[in-house]
Design a binder for these strands. Sequence first.
DNA 1: GCCCAGGATCACC
DNA 2: GGTGATCCTGGG
Length: 284
Amino acid sequence: MRVEYGNGSAIVTDIGAFEPRHIFDNGQCFRWRAQEDGSYSGIAHGRYLNVSKIDGGAKLYPCNPDDFENIWRAYFDFDRDYGALFAGTRDGALLAGQHYAPGLRVLNQQPFETLISFIISANNNITRIRGIIGRLCEKYGAPVEFAGNTYFAFPAPPALAAASEADFKALGLGYRAPYVQKTAQTVSGGFSLNEVVRMSYADAKKALCRLPGVGPKVADCVLLFSLGKTRAFPADVWIKRFLLNEYGFSGNDRQISDFAYQRFGNLAGIAQQYLFYYARENKN
DNA sequence: GCCCAGGATCACC
DNA sequence: GGTGATCCTGGG
């Protein structure tokens, strides 16, 4: 990876393929929007950022050296060579998934935002999830000014903890309102997501599953998309259907996790992202 | 009007 | 510990 700075941008090269739509429109995040020029803009870490694909890499704007090193380098997982992942695999579905989605990367998002977002995602559709999170940010998040526009950061734990169940229902959370309310209070009250990072995968998953509204699938999403646990293998209905159709495998959540780890190893979660593409493309 | 959406929970077995 | 019904809500 190489990075150069100019005109307020960071130009990142030597990272292999980089494909914004395979990064931002694959369900791992909810706050990035495609722009007319094909780039994506979003708010993360309380900052506005525009991301575009350039020849051999990515352009981030606005981005100074400090923000790149302290935030975006890890956020975009730039230190991982995605082109070299699963080299030599004979798994046809994984190969096909890699073929469908070159330039895909798994983001390292902020834990609290990811936790709340995926609680909201339960039995919900992407459009509605985005809408709810957007309203949540507008109402409880800090304003972020950029180029004459006002955006909103994802709310901090105390800001959400102070809201009531009725407040959340008014934003359309439905039966997830008490889950978000209680989990926000728990985190605001001292439950440390930074401690969960230091736990083993199994212990971390157990700890997250004690939070209201968090079950095995949501826990795996949080572990994979924000806590760096690359072996977390979120098993949604698509993946379960895929495992059955492709490998003739079915099992409970623990068995699925073990199966994925045996087959894809410590990067099973990244494999899951490619497999999800495969499953979706093939409608199975 | 009915069904579904990248699940979690509770009641029951 | 395993299974099935139920759950808010907006869109197709």
